[in-house]
Structure formats: structure tokens, C-alpha cells
């Protein structure tokens, strides 16, 4: 039996190789090699360009711990990641539920399209359109003042809320998509059974729907949290003077001061912290699921 299984899997692997090869070749060339170069850089004192002297050092990693600046920023970025993920759940999950369980046919397709639409537009275009909406004398300000009987002053531009709004807008489709897939897979008869056994709507949500759609929620949260923690474009453009985050400092190291070793070290510290958080969260979330 064991032998049979072994040959079976071997037979299964060999024909599968040509199918796997392009993906792994691509991963090796496009991700693994540059990433290992970056690991290498992060232990160097300087880039070996134009005959500059360099040697190996742990100094770039030590820099993170020697100044409170980087830790403060990392915490701020983690908070940003949590808040954006939370808002994506609050906004995205109900939408996914309606898409999966309430709407059918044409109307579902139409709403789905609206959800996906932000994906098809360029990130910079999205951010600059937010800039037009959020600023003082912008679209939001003018519209609200035209409708409301009293005068209010809306100037959200260059503030922390603006960063949150921009990021939530960019990332909410991930949450809708992942939750939609798991919610759609829930058998309607389970919901009917629950109802017929006298469960209230809230009980149904808590005991049946959320647990069954947990994998989607977790996948969505991970997909959103990780890039948001390292984001730099949205904070820089929408955040103004409050827009300094861990991601913008890494960008500065690469673009503004040409300190690639420090930038690489900061990136890998971020990667490590994010991995630790995901690893710690995994068992808790799995139990919840």
C-alpha cells in the first residue's frame, strides 16, 4: 500500500514538473535572487560601487535598536496596518455577505464590478483623486456645504484619517473577494437548518456564518495587513507632515540618501516582525475558526 502510494506520487510529480517549472523558475529569478542580494546588502557597510571600500557588519541592524526613532515608526506602521485591516473588515465583510447570499444574477455582477473597479485604476491616480476630494475647498467640502444648512469646514487632506481613507479604499477589494469566496461556499441548507432550529440572526452570524467564513477573513486580513505596514506612497502623498511611517523611511534610505544597506536591513526587520505577528496570530485564529 505504502509502496503503491509512493510510486503513485512519483508518477504524479514527474508529469507535473513541466507545469511547475515556469512558476518556480520565475520565483527563483524574480524573487529569490534579488531578495538574497538584498539580504547580502543588509550586512554590508557600503555598496561596492565605483570601487568603494566595504566590509561585513551588523551595524545596519544595530542602527534599528540604537535609535528609538525606528521602533516608534514601526509601531505607528503596525497600528496603521491594524486600523486599515479593521476598517476593511467592517466595510468589506457585509458587502461580501450581500454579494454571496442576498444578490443573484445581474445585480450581483453589477455590484461585483463596482467592487473590483478600483483594482483596474492606477494606484497613483486613485491617491491623487482622493487628494482632490479631501482637501479644503475640495469636492467633499463643497458638496457637504452645499447640502447642509450650517457651515462646516472639511479639510481631511494631509492628516492621519486621509491616509486611512486612501489605504482602505485601495485594499477593501481584497477583503470582499476573499470573504465572498468562503461565504459563497457555505451551504444554504446549513443556514436554513439553523433558522428552523430557532437561532436568531445574531446567533446564526456568530455560530455558523463567521466561523465558516473565517479562512476568508484571515486570508483577507493577511493580504491587507502585510502591504499596509510597509506602505509609503499613500502616507507620503495623503499624510503631509504626519505622513512619516516605517515604509517612507525605508524609501528614503533607498531613494533619498542612497543608504541601501540600512534600507535593506530595515526591510528585513519589518519582514521578520510581520512573520512573527502572523505566526503568533495563526494558532489563535485557527482555534477561533
Amino acid at each position: 500500500m505504502a509502496e503503491q502510494l509512493a510510486t503513485g506520487s512519483r508518477r504524479g510529480l514527474r508529469p507535473a514538473l513541466p507545469l511547475l517549472l515556469p512558476a518556480y523558475l520565475w520565483l527563483t529569478v524574480a524573487i529569490f535572487l534579488p531578495l538574497s542580494a538584498m539580504v547580502f546588502f543588509s550586512f554590508m557597510t557600503d555598496l561596492p560601487l565605483a570601487g568603494k571600500e566595504w566590509s561585513f557588519t551588523l551595524g545596519n541592524y544595530a542602527a534599528f535598536f540604537s535609535q528609538s526613532l525606528y521602533l516608534t515608526l514601526l509601531l505607528a506602521s503596525l497600528r496603521l496596518g491594524l486600523e486599515v485591516t479593521l476598517w476593511c473588515v467592517v466595510i468589506g465583510y457585509p458587502a461580501a455577505y450581500v454579494l454571496a447570499k442576498v444578490l443573484k444574477g445581474r445585480s450581483r455582477e453589477a455590484i461585483f464590478l463596482l467592487v473590483i473597479l478600483p483594482f483596474w485604476s492606477n494606484g497613483l491616480v486613485r491617491i491623487f483623486s482622493w487628494a482632490m476630494v479631501l482637501r479644503e475647498g475640495g469636492i467633499l467640502d463643497i458638496t457637504l456645504n452645499a447640502v447642509l444648512p450650517f457651515k462646516i469646514n472639511i479639510d481631511l487632506m494631509y492628516s492621519y484619517p486621509a491616509v486611512i481613507i486612501g489605504l482602505v479604499h485601495s485594499y477593501v477589494p481584497y477583503m470582499v473577494l476573499t470573504c465572498y469566496l468562503t461565504l459563497q461556499a457555505i451551504d444554504d441548507s446549513l443556514i436554513e437548518a439553523g433558522r428552523s432550529l430557532g437561532a436568531s440572526r445574531l446567533q446564526m452570524l456568530k455560530r455558523v456564518i463567521i466561523p465558516l467564513s473565517m479562512p476568508g477573513l484571515i486570508a483577507g486580513a493577511a493580504l491587507i495587513f502585510v502591504p499596509v505596514v510597509g506602505s509609503f506612497m499613500e502616507p507620503r502623498i495623503l499624510g503631509g507632515r504626519t505622513g512619516t511611517f516605517y515604509g517612507t523611511v525605508i524609501e528614503d534610505q533607498f531613494v533619498a540618501v542612497f543608504n541601501w544597506p540600512l534600507g535593506a536591513a530595515l526591510s528585513f526587520i519589518l519582514l521578520a516582525v510581520v512573520l512573527v505577528i502572523l505566526a503568533l496570530a495563526a494558532p489563535v485564529l485557527r482555534r477561533a475558526g
Binding site: 526613532l69 507632515r241 504626519t242 528614503d252 540618501v257
Partner: peptide, 17 residues
């Protein structure tokens, strides 16, 4: 000097938070 200035500038920007 540039590194010193950058450290000061980053500190100022972070303290705004």
C-alpha cells in the same frame, strides 16, 4: 554632516505624530 542633518530631520518629522 548629511547623516547628522537627516537624523535631526527624521526625528523632527517623527515627533510630529
Amino acid at each position: 554632516q548629511r547623516e547628522k542633518y537627516l537624523a535631526l530631520w527624521q526625528e523632527l518629522k517623527v515627533n510630529v505624530k
